[in-house]
Design a binder for these strands. Structure first.
Lengths: 169, 169
DNA sequence: GACAGGTGGTTCAGATTTGAAGAACTGGGA
DNA sequence: TCCCAGTTCTTCAAATCTGAACCACCTGTC
């Protein structure tokens, strides 16, 4: 094994900054969503993906890609959403095994209600804290970082999940 | 309530990049540590903090600051470490309520053994993917982001946790 | 058509996390 | 001294997450 290349001061600063920002932002948004909308971040993301899809329906598998939980985790979260009436399960017409998650009207309403507060929180926690050029560097650099760790042959899943949380509705 | 300021394209790219990089890196490192050293990232961080402290001992409370888990989470993780003989609990001499977590020799060995692989993984996943200037921008920008969400009157807890994982031993 | 191998989702047990509640104690003022 | 508010840490139940095991099903091949 080669000699270990330890982190120098600047590298360490970047790593620690990343670690701290990461956990604080995630915890902060998790709480904001829970308080304001009764949703976990994972659930919010599911709703966003569904709302962006034509018909408001997406195969479980497609949902799992790009959504950063395990398959069983997704099953669990969708069940929770179903229990609250925000999503329905429907069997896939082209593949009997398949299951479609379908956004209900209540789900769409919930998302519509939650989105403004969430976007505001994202701005306050991250976006509006950054300068314009920092924002771009961050987007490029972290984009590369994320892409490299992406399972082979998998689309970003982030490419166009725009929907309610992105552009003006 | 003011009109919602939705995210424009560049802002959205930054946010999504952040989200994806965040979860992929964290998941990746979690697995690397688990496989190579049988530690969770949280446990690794605890060991690092202890190894950097004089005497290898730190109050639970001090450990909790800067470590991004709840108090009960810390109790749980320290119990796990104790069960594996990497850490001992000792009561604090200056405050009967207090508990000191103390690094055992086995704990120090475990950390020493785990550190090179972990640093290599951090490099491969994040640090070596970034250009020099991106690294600095990221450190400054995310440093600011993390600091803003820091509970009032709390030191970074990241300031000097150097120890084994930082500089050349 | 029948088979082998891969896919899609769920279920399960076990690990982890969280906030709330509790038990024990400190510290400073009346 | 006594009391009260605040601190420290643990315990508890409930929620969540994970990987492995599992069943049902699709698909390409012979």
């Amino acid at each position: 094994m080669a000699e270990t290349r330890w982190l120098d001061e600047r590298e360490m600063a970047a790593w620690k900054g990343f670690l701290e920002a990461t956990s604080r932002v995630s915890r902060h948004l998790e709480q904001q969503l829970k308080e304001d909308a009764g949703l976990s971040h994972a659930q919010y993301e599911i709703l966003v993906r569904l709302s962006a899809a034509p018909g408001g329906e997406v195969r479980m598998t497609d949902l799992a890609h790009g959504l950063f939980t395990s398959k069983s985790g997704l099953t669990y979260q969708v069940s929770q959403l179903e229990k609250h009436g925000l999503v329905e399960r429907r069997s896939c017409p082209t593949d009997v095994r398949g299951v479609l998650a379908v956004l209900t009207p209540e789900g769409r309403d919930t998302l519509r209600a939650a989105a403004p507060g969430h976007v505001a929180a994202v701005r306050a926690a991250l976006i509006d804290v950054l300068e314009r050029d920092e924002l771009d560097v961050l987007a490029h650099a972290l984009g590369r970082v994320g892409a490299r760790l992406r399972p082979a042959g998998q689309d970003s899943g982030m490419a166009d999940s725009g929907g309610i949380s992105t552009s003006s509705s």
